[in-house]
């Protein structure tokens, strides 16, 4: 009882404090703590993608903190919609959690009928994001964003830029970039991040809307022109942010964790705290950043404000994309 009260209060505080205090609490009250059996973690995408990799990185820390396993399951389909549309049918005991992705869970209900509404998903933590990045081949003539903008303005639509599918984070990034700078490029959709890389390296497209993870994986074969982060990514200290260049773009694909609606309030908070603890582990941060991810800490009590803000941004872009059709 004491533990529950303590955690509830702690949830309001800053995360760094929480992490240390919570560790002590877990160490002392571990025997009675949630969870006391393995937790199923459903990834709504195929194994091997960014959602899977970040979950795999979380796995050992979850075990370290709680003493219980985090079992990763896959339920891919319809860009994640298939799993999200059945999340609330799962038992709400905290032992079933599901990865969620932005902008997917906002854009899908806006543009299609995916079988769920954004409000149906109870997000308890947003733990990282892969910032949008504009990439070129290492031997490309483009060295800076300005050169791209100039070339695109000279012959609108002649430059091709690849990205993943339509109405996705990449597509939105392209639309926002175009709105903010007036640079018009032809957006070429591919089936997944994996398919975009050979397209860029093989010269089918001149530029690529990708993520920092792509640049981290491809090393010196690609050049990142700018990243859509507030601050420069620790792995790429030389790559400017769009903000530095006067283009107000911060965003990418955000990843978090949601629980079924029936999950009690205190379990939501406890899960949020566990994920927060994992996110505060310096080793975990190092591994995530090495892979190109950018850390993000939106705990359960900050979720409403965060989702509200993203919802507004994506609605604007969706309107622009809709008017394009």
């Amino acid at each position: 009882m004491l533990k529950k009260l303590g955690l509830k209060k702690l949830g309001q505080k800053k995360l760094g404090v929480l992490a240390t205090v919570a560790t002590v609490l877990w160490a002392t009250g571990g025997a009675f703590a949630f969870p006391d059996k393995p937790v199923n973690y459903i990834i709504p995408f195929n194994a091997g993608g960014e959602s899977d990799i970040s979950a795999r990185l979380q796995q050992p820390y979850f075990k370290k903190i709680t003493g219980d396993d985090l079992i990763i399951q896959y339920q891919a389909g319809a860009g994640g919609a298939q799993a999200w549309s059945v999340l609330n049918d799962q038992p709400g005991d905290g032992y079933t959690i599901m990865g969620t992705n932005l902008p997917h869970i906002i854009l899908q209900p806006l543009l299609q009928k995916p079988g769920y509404e954004t409000a149906d998903l109870t997000n308890i933590y947003m733990f990282h994001f892969t910032p949008d990045a504009l990439l070129v081949r290492a031997d490309s003539k483009f060295e800076t964003i300005q050169q791209v903008i100039d070339a695109a303005k000279e012959t609108p639509g002649a430059l091709t830029v690849g990205g993943t599918a339509t109405n996705t984070a990449n597509h939105i990034a392209n639309q926002r970039f175009s709105t903010l700078t007036g640079a018009e490029m032809t957006y070429i959709p591919y089936t997944g991040t994996g398919a975009t890389i050979p397209a860029l390296l093989g010269g089918e497209v001149e530029l690529l809307w990708g993520y920092t993870t792509v640049a981290a994986g491809q090393g010196d074969k690609v050049r990142m022109l700018a990243v859509a982060q507030d601050k420069r990514h620790p792995l790429f200290p030389d790559v400017p942010t769009f903000k530095e260049l006067g283009i107000d773009m911060v965003g990418g694909a955000y990843r978090g964790i949601a629980v079924p609606k029936s999950t009690p309030e205190e379990v939501r908070q406890q899960l949020s705290d566990i994920i927060g603890q994992i996110n505060a582990d310096p080793e975990f941060i190092k591994e995530m950043e090495q892979a190109g991810f950018a850390m993000l800490d939106v705990p359960y009590d900050g979720m409403e404000a965060f989702m509200g803000e993203r919802q507004k941004i994506y609605e604007d872009v969706a309107r622009q994309l809709g008017s394009l059709k």
Binding site: A47, G48, R56, G194, I197, G217, Q218
Partner: peptide, 14 residues
């Protein structure tokens, strides 16, 4: 290249 040739390769790459 770090580009998975098939879906199982993607998992192994991860």
């Amino acid at each position: 290249l770090g580009i998975p040739g098939t879906p199982p390769d993607a998992v192994i790459l991860g």
